[in-house]
Design a protein around this nucleic acid. Structure first.
Lengths: 335, 335
DNA sequence: CTGTTAGCGCCTTCAG
DNA sequence: CTGAAGGCGCTAACAG
């Protein structure tokens, strides 16, 4: 039925080993023999069985990727970075959505490991001890991608979320704002939630601006959530003159909530956030934001993983990528 | 080093066959024995090797997905639909970006087949004879997802692009517009390009509106491209009163091009398109568009694939999903 | 440069 | 209900 390496060997009048060699580009084959083998392969329409190869060689040339949600543009851009580099090094990607749910995350890590992936890229919510335990049961390298574990024990690639948030809020302050509201993510979420809130807090402190409880509200990262929180701010007796949103999507929701009230951004209220999703430059006014290099986070973490899989010695096993303030049109000096 | 089924057998005092049975949930095992085996598994931290299993059973419980670009929100939503259903049936997904480039598409199809996927989902540009040839060399089922082959020979799941476009343009006409410009995709692209153009043409014809060459321009599906084409329309001596864009992203570009000129949508110019990406409801005015059920296209095609892989007999091997006109704020009656 | 020979870890008849 | 034995298709020493 299916043609195997054995069939090719017989057809070419050589041994299986020789066929294996030419298929794997082993130089130790006489050009003439190589040619014979190739012809036999062609004639028979032979296609190497990667599963058998994986079993014999203990390498599958595939890496597992656990991702919160591929339909979310932030992650899908990271995924593209991962895939491009993986491709470049001849790896394939098994992709699993885990929705930042711990049980699911751990479950897919295990099935990925069962599939004998050569390495694992983990993008998720908070990394708990249970995660760490699952990771430790692996014999292949794992790198965190867009997250970190609190104890800083795993290889990882991420930005400095706190600093990114700090820079954003600092810009607002430098523009004369002192009533600065924040649309935050849940503080349970270390990177997008807690760290960005911490950056906000720090910037205020450093400017001697007291933190006001009523100026901080938690959203769920979605557009609608940004609108809701903004409506709340708008009804405050002394509403903020500027808003820092933990993510672009909520910021865009906020912009529209403001505009829907007949107010203007940035004339009446300034807005800044973190992420720089594509949409940020597709709204009016275009959103000023701190860019997080999504594609690079994916690409760099995949590159790091290849090194680890190759057992190369790598000095920087925890890389922090730079962020960048993108000045567009949603921030103005306080009137 | 790694613990195998053999180790578990020894530890539990049974044969490999028995361990295999309990791992695979075969009912023919005495509960007591089953318990013993589970304990041994636990004690040893045994993790089944899916590669070995795949080789022996000739099933990998993974399916290949070739996709144009995972970072494009249209496709990433389809991908999410695929993954959810795959997950439900205990399949994993190997994801490959192919950028609608024929060579790359064919190459990844082959490597996916080498990896012994149990089935393949193909999302791509035009399906050529070379594609068909690659598909035919497969012994596993393949379904086209969001595309079709001209000869209608492959299983597929898609919408009726021509009808979707027709419905969109019809709405413009019903609103009294007769000067209708189109921002098209390349006519080489069967589904998003040619078919949508065909729908536009048909709607005009049916309304007795002559097709004007200067009212059709080709874009590349991106935001900027929509802006550019719109700027061109705006400078026409008798500019269109309504625009049909082949995709939402270009439509949004067009809206902003119009607004940047100080004109208003839909008061001065109406806009409609096809897709219904998330952003469509996040711009002002919110975009009226014909919704393409991205998630469902993915989910349904994956479901179809499971049936095919199961060798179930399926009557409808070519499914056309319904589209739906979403009336929002970017279309108004002609002044 | 090429062939022989063991496995890789598991499933799957076939007996018992 | 359980065990024995033969592969699945390929790689990797080890000889020659």
């Amino acid at each position: 039925m299916t043609v195997t390496i054995y069939d090719v060997a017989r057809e070419a009048g050589v041994s299986m080993a020789t066929v294996s060699r030419v298929v794997n580009n082993n130089p130790n084959v006489k050009p003439q023999t190589r040619k014979k083998v190739f012809e036999a392969i062609e004639r028979l329409g032979y296609r190497p069985n990667a599963v058998a190869r994986g079993l014999a060689s203990k390498k599958t040339t595939t890496v597992g990727v656990v991702i919160p949600d591929i339909s979310n543009s932030i992650f899908s851009e990271v995924a593209r970075g991962i895939e491009d580099i993986a491709n470049m090094y001849h790896y394939n990607i098994i992709l699993c959505n885990a929705d930042k749910r711990k049980e699911k995350e751990i479950r897919v890590v295990n099935t990925l490991l069962e599939k004998q992936v050569d390495g694992l890229l983990f993008m998720g919510g908070t990394v708990t001890d249970e995660h760490l335990q699952a990771f430790q049961s692996a014999t292949v390298p794992i790198v965190l991608c867009g997250t970190t574990d609190e104890k800083q024990t795993m290889p990882s690639v991420d930005i400095d979320h706190e600093k990114a948030a700090y820079d954003a809020v600092k810009m607002l302050i430098d523009n004369g704002h002192r009533e600065i509201g924040m649309i935050s993510g849940t503080l349970q979420d270390l990177s997008n939630g807690y760290s960005r809130y911490a950056g906000y807090k720090k910037a205020l402190e450093q400017a001697g601006i007291p933190l006001r409880e009523e100026y901080v509200r938690i959203g769920n990262y979605r557009y609608e959530s940004g609108m809701e929180v903004m409506r709340y701010f708008l009804e405050l007796p002394n509403r903020p003159t500027a808003i820092f949103s933990a993510t672009d999507e909520m910021a865009i929701g906020a912009i529209h909530a403001i505009q829907d009230q007949g107010l203007r951004v940035p004339d009446d209220i300034s807005i800044i956030s973190v992420d720089n999703i594509r949409m940020a430059s597709m709204v009016r006014p275009q959103l000023t934001t701190v860019a997080q290099p999504m594609y690079d986070i994916g690409a760099v973490s995949m590159r790091l993983l290849t090194k680890l899989m190759n057992k190369e010695t790598v000095d920087m096993t925890r890389v922090v990528l730079p962020h960048e303030l993108i000045r567009r049109k949603s921030v103005a000096a306080k009137a």
